[in-house]
Amino acid sequence: MAFNLAFLSSILIILSAFSPVITALSSNYYDKSCPNVEQIVSNAVKKGVANDRTVPAALLRMHFHDCFIRSGGPNWDVPKGRKDGRTSKATETRQLPAPTFNISQLQQSFSQRGLSLNDLVALSGGHTLGFSHCSSFQNRIHNFNATHDVDPSLQPSFAASLKNTCPINNRPKNAGATMDPSSTTFDNTYFKLILQGKSLFSSDQALLSLPKTKNLVTKFATSKEAFLDAFVNSMIKMSSITGGQEVRKDCRIVN
């Protein structure tokens, strides 16, 4: 299934339980049971994107959340057949890496799921799409620590614009900022912004904390092609995190 990220048609909605990475999926899983599924899903997602350009970011976020909790752009063959879980618990969202995580916390969160530092940096590139509410980066622009009100790693004029958008005593429900200026285009701008001190999250800036992850950020900022190749490989690897009990016949109810 050749898949364009603008369309993450993959996600073939999965609420899988968590277990280590396995390779039980296949690109032809539905060839006999539902041979037209790829076109059906692709058409539905493309229609959604035509109506709302934020759909790709939402789908990418959903896919990431699904794989971590229970369980145009680049093209790739999407492995299919992920198992659906039979339970869904809001408390399990605590397992997701937070935007305030430091590099040690990020590394631990990813390694527990069989994902490497390479995967961490590549998958973080998904932040090239979408929007963030103030609450996810408030810690960097107000009362950062005992010495600085604002995170000193933030570029000053960028920090000032964020403070203007998200004042400490005035927090409109929908206030926030796009992840990067080209927030509906899947590109490598995110990595360039990190190097410029213009990333939103502490977890983004944390990628510069280790020589290996900093080198990858620089590599992906320099080469969009290198980033896309790494992203595809890491998406396939992350998609293989599974552990559910069944492939849902009707996505709304358990079998």
Results as ranks from 00 to 15, higher is better:
M235C: 13
V41Y: 11
S71C: 09
G85N: 04
F7V: 09
L106K: 00
W76Y: 12
S109C: 01
L96P: 01
M235S: 13
F220Q: 04
S239D: 14
F186C: 09
T23W: 01
N215T: 14
F220D: 03
T100G: 05
L8F: 08
L193E: 11
K249G: 15
T87K: 12
L15G: 14
S234L: 01
L208I: 00
R171H: 10
S157G: 05
K249F: 08
N255T: 13
T23Q: 02
S124Y: 08
Y30S: 13
T213G: 02
V232H: 03
K224S: 09
F186W: 08
S136Q: 06
K237I: 01
I253N: 14
D187C: 11
T218A: 06
V49N: 03
Y29F: 15
F131Q: 08
D229V: 07
T185A: 03
F7I: 11
S153M: 07
T242A: 08
S161L: 05
L15V: 11
N102R: 04
M62T: 03
L207K: 00
S157V: 12
K198Q: 13
D151R: 03
R113S: 02
A206Q: 06
K212A: 15
D229S: 15
P152W: 01
S27I: 09
K173C: 04
L96I: 03
T128F: 06
G176Y: 04
Q155Y: 11
S161E: 14
G197Q: 04
M235I: 14
R82K: 15
F7G: 13
K46L: 14
S10V: 12
I69N: 01
S240I: 03
A6T: 15
L208M: 02
L228R: 00
K89P: 04
K212Q: 15
F64M: 10
S234P: 01
N51S: 15
N75L: 08
L200W: 12
D77P: 07
G126Y: 03
S71N: 10
G126F: 04
L60E: 00
I236K: 11
C251Y: 15
N43L: 07
N170R: 10
M235N: 11
R252D: 15
T189Y: 08
T222N: 11
P79I: 05
T87I: 07
T165K: 13
C166G: 06
A50I: 05
N164E: 14
T185E: 09
F158I: 10
S116R: 05
I168Q: 14
D119S: 01
T128K: 12
S104N: 12
L162Y: 08
T93M: 05
I22T: 09
N174Q: 09
E246G: 01
F110N: 08
L8N: 10
I241R: 13
A24K: 09
K214Q: 13
T54N: 12
I253C: 13
D151K: 05
K212L: 15
T185C: 01
T189L: 13
F110G: 05
R82C: 11
S209T: 06
W76Q: 08
E225C: 02
D31G: 05
S111R: 09
D229I: 13
A177I: 04
N139H: 14
I236H: 02
Y29P: 07
G130N: 03
F220H: 02
N169V: 07
F3M: 12
S132W: 04
G244E: 00
